[in-house]
């Protein structure tokens, strides 16, 4: 049903119907933002990247092979864009630290992502930082599988399709991700 309605929407967009594109955005915006939040842990950054995802969807829609599910394709774009954003952010932070050492830092810096989290409570803030760091320390594949499962509540079969791996690989990735997270969190509380 969803695949069918997505096809109708795609056809309308390809005919130049702007309202159809708006409908598509409204239908999938929470899905895309949640995927981005899972990687970025910041609502504002996640919304910015989600916008980029929809822009890419819009410009590449003609190339999209309709035998695949639209959501699978959108998840892939969201994961790639989020990971690319994190990589470029890491590079910027490296340059920033270099500037800090040589006293070249600017005053109008953006606040770190953790500071803009809606969780205002101090303890909650600490816990948020702790889980984010633990998730960020996972290997890329474990992180993708875990995030899609936890933040988007996707079944293993769909994660396998998005990642282009087998179902048993996804099961193993998520299991190992949970074990690693548990180990890191326990280690933190022990010390």
């Amino acid at each position: 049903m969803d695949i069918q309605s997505d096809r109708i929407l795609i056809d309308k967009i390809l005919e130049g119907d702007q309202f159809a594109f708006k409908e598509l955005v409204e239908k999938y915006q929470t899905m895309v933002i949640n995927t981005c939040i899972g990687f970025l842990h910041d609502k504002q950054d996640a919304e910015d990247i989600a916008q980029e995802v929809f822009i890419e969807v819009f410009y590449s829609l003609r190339k999209f092979r309709q035998e695949a599910k639209l959501t699978t394709w959108m998840y892939r774009i969201a994961v790639n864009k989020s990971l690319n954003f994190l990589r470029s952010k890491k590079r910027t932070q490296w340059i920033q630290s270099f500037e800090d050492v040589f006293g070249m830092s600017r005053q109008d810096q953006k606040q770190p992502a953790e500071m803009r989290n809606p969780a205002t409570d101090m303890e909650m803030q600490e816990e948020a930082t702790l889980i984010h760091n633990a998730i960020n320390s996972l290997s890329e594949n474990q992180r993708i599988a875990f995030t899609l499962n936890k933040y988007d509540d996707l079944p293993y079969s769909e994660i396998a399709e998005i990642m282009g791996v087998s179902l048993s690989s996804v099961e193993s990735l998520i299991h190992r991700a949970k074990m690693n997270l548990q180990q890191k969190l326990m280690y933190h509380y022990k010390n």
Binding site: T30, I37, A119, E127, A128
Partner: peptide, 30 residues
């Protein structure tokens, strides 16, 4: 209890309602 509390953070981060300005902003940008 600590593990449960830390993992529950994920639940609080998940967005359930869509932002009405999101699509407007995007369409405007496009």
């Amino acid at each position: 209890l600590k593990l449960k509390s830390v993992l529950s953070i994920i639940e609080t981060e998940i967005i359930k309602e869509s932002n009405p300005y999101f699509s407007m902003k995007l369409i405007e940008r496009l």
